[in-house]
């Protein structure tokens, strides 16, 4: 996408060249493992840069977990994977306080959430109780157990995967909790060429084992600072507002986008600009992240049989870019 773009003016905020190279390499490495999915990979990185959490939703077997693992291996972060099941309790992910006879006191044993990158696999298999524990931790960046508040590490990034909500044996995430994820991406079946390469190549797990970390936690924090500094001009904010307003006025949408959704959209668009090497947002950034940022937050009207993705696409097609 960015290879054909016009030479736009370089921004005031320029990334440190080393950082930019590292970011490029990280993306390239993930793309080597997850073949033919550069757009979702890009969104995943945008999510990391914007400081949000990522929800990957698709059918089993299209590479959700592989993407999550590739991200984990590429980022030099402490990593924990949690496979959610229906009999899981909140303490299984948060951690428990155990009585220690020697000291005569309770000592907290941190759960898998105390990691910088948490892969929450098949999040909709867990019961709502466990889900809420995870989502609260994601929102607060801290956990309170037995009256003591413990901060989660920074950066703290959750990649959750889930099967489409229609499948049996799942507890679909309620709309309010979907809102905790900045972006929701799908992977879909690979295109024929990518699928052929996938079939011909060696096992993905071996490939994953060969991956080298490219971005340190400190670098991720630097990238996040750069993202926050990206300029969103009044014209761009006009455009974001117009999208929000259109979602609230749309006949087939029962509940439109919240101000928090707008903030998430703008942050993700800023991250997108950083990924393109720009210090300012353009409408194309917003358009690139809008389906991922908005679709899972839209609640269709009862009378509508359009999917959330269709509604998001329809909103993009309705709202003109200035002028």
């Amino acid at each position: 996408m960015n290879t054909r773009l016009a030479p736009v003016p370089t921004s005031a905020v320029a990334l440190d060249p080393a950082l930019a190279t590292a970011l490029e390499r990280a993306q390239a490495q993930v793309n080597q493992v997850v073949l033919g999915k550069s757009a979702p990979v890009r969104l995943a990185f945008a999510c990391i840069l914007a400081g949000g959490h990522l929800l990957i939703e698709d059918l089993p077997g299209v590479g959700k977990t592989t993407l999550a693992h590739a991200l984990a291996a590429t980022l030099d972060l402490s990593f924990q994977r949690v496979q959610f099941t229906s009999d899981m309790l909140p303490s299984d992910i948060i951690g428990v306080s155990v009585y220690e006879r020697e000291s005569g006191a309770f000592r907290f044993h941190p759960g898998p959430l105390f990691a910088q990158l948490v892969l929450a696999d098949e999040i909709n298999r867990a019961t709502p109780k466990t889900q809420s524990a995870l989502l609260e931790a994601m929102a607060e960046q801290q956990i309170t157990v037995d009256g003591a508040t413990r901060r989660l590490p920074s950066p703290f990034f959750v990649v959750a995967t889930q099967n489409p909500v229609e499948l049996a044996g799942t507890y679909p995430l309620p709309d309010s909790q979907l809102d905790r994820f900045m972006l929701r991406i799908g992977l879909d079946y690979p295109d024929p060429a990518a699928e052929r390469a996938l079939l011909a190549a060696s096992d993905r797990r071996e490939l994953l084992a060969q991956l080298r970390p490219c971005l340190t936690g400190a670098q991720v924090l630097q990238l996040r600072a750069a993202t926050a500094a990206v300029l969103a001009s009044p014209a761009l904010i006009d455009y974001v507002q117009a999208l929000l307003a259109a979602s609230r006025a749309h006949a087939q949408i029962r509940v439109g986008l919240s101000p928090r959704a707008g903030l998430a959209l703008l942050s993700a668009a800023r991250a997108c600009a950083v990924l393109a090497g720009r210090g300012y947002c353009v409408p194309e950034d917003v358009q690139a992240v809008f389906p991922g940022a908005a679709a899972h937050r839209l609640i269709p009207a009862a009378s509508s049989n359009a999917s959330r993705d269709d509604l998001a696409a329809d909103l993009l097609a309705r709202v003109p870019v200035r002028p």
């Binding site: 003016p9 001009s233 014209a235």
Partner: peptide, 27 residues
């Protein structure tokens, strides 16, 4: 991007669009 495909050699269009982006979104 579209004009780059339509008129690959035309730098003036690209400059004009880049100038607009610069004025409208980069400041």
């Amino acid at each position: 991007a579209r004009m780059a495909l339509l008129l690959p050699g035309d730098a003036a269009v690209q400059r004009a669009l880049a100038a607009y982006v610069g004025l409208r979104y980069a400041c």
